[in-house]
Amino acid sequence: METKDFAKNMRKLIVEAIYNSGSGHPGGSLSCTDIVSVLFNEEMNKSPECPKDPDRDRFVLSKGHASATLYAALALKGFFPTEEMKTFRKIGGRLEGHPDMKYIPGVDMSTGSLGQGISTACGMAVSGKRLNKDYRVYAVMGDGELEEGQCWEAFMFAAHYKLDNLCVFIDFNGLQIDGEITKVMSPLPIPEKMKAFGFNVIEIDGHNLDEIRAALKNAKETKGMPTAVVCHTVKGKGVSFMENAAGWHGTAPNKEQYEQAIKEIEANG
């Protein structure tokens, strides 16, 4: 499947899952969909036949509330049936509100508490370095998440141990729960701070697949330091009424809104 279509199918699954469960996080799930689509459809060596392969690339969704995005990618890649998306956030199922590595094949780390995922990604990367493994580690973080002090402990760690096998995507959509990040507690300027913390920093349009591909290539070619890809994104991307609206952070669409959203996603591209 073309990655463009992969991303489109992901968006449909995301909106559908959140609609079905009546809860979830559409805004931040849709803003990182394109990044996750390139990673799962093109970049990472991961297979549903052997989800625990010790040599697989690792993926950590540090902004774990975007679980629907990860589940959509895993379902489309065959880690579990797309049908199972119906069980999202429901009792008796395994698609927990936030990713659960114990039961969901393909989930490399349980996340949900902001700021912790990036540290665990550092752990995977440093293990790979020390044990001479070739796998790479990818993490997706929120811009609001950067307000957690632990992120900066992790960045210090990544640069100190020269984790060039680590590539961090920052979903820079400018919003968090209570509104604009610059109004709530500004983590800006992000690229300058990441540079100061010892990262190779690339700034891209996080919805442009070619720019995402180029950033991944750049990250792989960079030696001796970790890479941060600061992705300018739109929260709620792909559904007009969800775009750039903080109110859609953690709200499920009603029936009309759901139908409208699917129509728009299908019409786009």
């Binding site: 665990t120 995977m124 293990s127 790979g128 402990e153 992790a154 760690f157 100190h160």
Partner: peptide
């Protein structure tokens, strides 16, 4: 196989978790 994480215990515990997921 020894990693000094500096004075950052929260990060250290999550790094430990990440390392352990790689069969360690």
């Amino acid at each position: 196989r020894h990693i000094n994480c500096g004075i950052a215990e929260g990060n250290m515990m999550a790094v430990a978790a990440g390392i352990s997921t790689c069969d360690n």
